[in-house]
Write a protein that binds this DNA or RNA. Structure first.
Length: 564
RNA sequence: GCGCUCGUAGCUCAAUUGGAUAGAGCACUUGACUACGAAUCAAGAGGUUGCAGGUUCGAGUCCUGCCGAGCGCACCA
């Protein structure tokens, strides 16, 4: 598996540390190392400003003295500029090191050895009987990518779809169905029709509060096991899941568990009892709450005794801890729920569960429409299914225009269209709010999924034409133009690590764009199938780029067609 | 009102987590398919990093205040 050779910054940090006579450890040095903004300045820079204080010397002076002592097979030359020591690497040596390591590890390049530890990823979690909107896309693709990234970092990922299949909303739905439900219509298009009556319910409830009372009563009876209510609930759930499954298949997302909120229905009295026993439960206006410092109390039961979101999340957290013993749990849920998770974790801590510190909320910004949150209740949603359909159509259109002889066009159009949608969501920092823009999503040029896919497809085409096969290679004649790419490839394992540490798939997406762009530049300037003795090493080089591009896309959950 | 998140080019976003002259893509203008796929490449133009202070060798990044946006804040999830 990966990690066959110590990474570059590691090695360089070592050399510097020794040159500093171990006054600074290699670890300390490594933290300071950076890449110069202008490539002409060097490959790796070491700023001496922090050393200046300790040694009571001018940074330039330190840099000069240090530069004289740096000698290693990795280093070609050293220059001093201001307080920086700028290192130029031995390109041939590093190139061989990096490319050989990819040739050996293949898709395992950058992978870490298994630590036999589990990470629970709670993501997607759509609400039953509500449409799968663009808003849910974020949690789904971020969570899925995070799971892939966790596995790459040596963890076992447990993908849990914590379905929103319980709660007062079902009371509303049951009341709405009894008043205006039409069985045939619902059978024909379940979510669409259920949404209609749900929205209608909300419109009327704004003026008539008795409807809300009826809904609360209906949910209460559902929670108490009322036959009729349960039957309806089951029906709604099955119908919704069927529709969700289509989306998940398109997105290539799968789950290890669909245990949603309802699953914890019979596990909640224990939690409530435990809270009571620990003296945390306090009555407040007929409801029961847990008081917290520096934040509003957490509501555990309503005054009619029915449970709430927080109760079910408590039960879920405890159940999961007992069954999975995960070392960490990620809740991939929008940042509008930050307060809820703070409360949840804090209640668990008060209950004396030390493991509560291993629970992390991974928040993300929301998808906005005209600068505003989309609201299901007002029926103002954009359906993910519609957007994906549009994207696939656009891909189809592009294929007809650019590559009409392509085989299995439908399959490829799906891969490109879906890839565009997923990539578009993952390429930016997760905390940013995203203004929904179909135009941007359907543009397949520039910083997009199809751009990266296209780069890979072109390499695949080269490899086929050159009848490439994996064997031993030297990389002596790939040209100086390859150097920026080598540096990126070298950096990949660290990007994988960083993406995990920051729970940030966009690191991978940005990396894949950089790599694709650099390779496209190389491609435009260098004849690869040159027929002059350099072809085999250039092909092998292109192959390593393809390996890393494909792996990056896989981590994002984006397919990588060989032709498109 | 309080809390959270954020404010960088016309638009969407980066910026090595405090480092060198703030960079990409889209859109716009121009050039490149006898070099392997033009979903590409090359070039041009585009900036007082919301405003005002502060911290230090050094601030888009950290602190304080203000302005602006979005989202939360008890029986929804």
């Amino acid at each position: 598996m990966g990690g066959k050779y110590m990474n570059l910054t590691n090695q360089i940090a070592n050399v510097i540390s020794i040159a500093l006579e171990n006054e600074w450890t290699a670890e300390q040095v490594e933290l300071l190392l950076e890449k110069p903004k202008q490539t002409e300045l060097g490959d790796i820079a070491f700023p001496c400003f922090t050393l200046a204080k300790k040694f009571r010397k001018a940074p330039q002076q330190i840099a000069l003295e240090l530069s004289a002592k740096l000698e290693d097979q990795l280093i070609a030359s050293v220059q001093v500029a201001g307080g920086y020591v700028n290192i130029f690497l031995n390109q041939a040596f590093v190139t061989n090191q990096v490319l050989h390591s990819i040739m050996t590890d293949l898709q395992k390049y950058g992978s870490k050895n298994s630590m036999h530890e589990k990470i629970v990823i709670d993501f997607s979690s759509p609400n039953i009987a509500k449409p799968f909107s663009m808003g849910h896309l974020r949690s789904t693709v971020i969570g899925n990518s995070l799971a892939n990234i966790a596995e790459k970092n040596g963890y076992e990922a447990l993908r849990i779809n914590h379905l929103g299949d319980w709660g007062t909303q079902f009371g509303k739905l049951i009341v709405a169905y009894k008043l205006w439900g039409n069985k045939e219509k619902i059978l024909a298009a379940p979510i669409e029709e259920l949404l209609k009556i749900y929205v209608h319910f909300h419109n009327l409830a704004e003026k008539d509060d008795s409807l809300n009372d009826q809904a609360r009563a209906a949910f209460k009876s559902l929670e108490e096991g009322d036959e009729e209510a349960l039957t309806l609930w089951n029906w709604f759930k099955e119908a919704s899941l069927k529709e969700f499954q289509i989306i998940y298949e398109l997105l290539g997302v799968h789950f290890d568990s669909y245990a949603g909120e309802a699953f914890y229905n019979d596990k909640m009295t224990r939690v409530v009892d435990d809270l009571k026993k620990k003296g945390l439960l306090i009555e407040s206006n007929g409801a029961f709450v847990v008081e917290l410092e520096d934040m509003p109390p957490s509501l555990i039961t309503k005054k009619d005794g029915a449970t709430l979101y927080a109760t079910r999340d408590l039960a879920a957290a405890i159940y999961r801890h007992q069954t999975f013993h995960a070392c960490k749990t990620f809740y991939v849920v929008g940042n509008e729920q930050t307060l809820h998770f703070k409360q949840l974790f804090s209640v668990l801590e008060k209950m004396g569960f030390e493991w509560s510190k291993n629970l992390v909320h991974v928040p993300f910004g929301m998808m906005l429409k005209d600068g505003k949150k989309m609201s299901t209740r007002k029926g103002k949603v954009i359906l993910l299914a519609d957007v994906i359909t549009d994207a696939i159509k656009t891909a189809q259109h592009n294929i007809e225009e650019k590559n009409p002889t392509l085989e299995n066009k439908e399959e490829v159009a799906k891969q490109v269209g879906v890839g565009a949608v997923i990539f578009n969501d993952l390429k930016n920092d997760r905390m940013n709010d995203i203004e929904f823009s179909l135009e941007q999503m359907l543009n397949f040029e520039g910083e997009t999924g199809p751009y990266v896919q296209y780069t890979n497809a072109r390499i695949c085409s080269l490899l086929q034409k050159g009848s490439f096969e994996v064997e031993a290679f030297t990389f002596s004649s790939i040209g100086v133009e390859a150097w920026p790419i080598i540096q990126l490839l070298e950096d990949f394992p660290r990007v994988v690590e960083k993406a995990f540490d920051n729970a940030d798939p966009s690191q991978i997406a940005k990396f894949s764009l950089l790599l694709a762009r650099q390779f496209n530049k190389y491609y435009a300037r260098t004849k690869i199938l040159a027929d002059d003795g350099t072809t085999s090493s250039k092909l092998a080089f292109a192959f390593t780029v393809s390996v890393v591009l494909k792996e990056s896309l896989r981590l994002l959950g984006v397919p990588a067609p060989e032709k498109m």
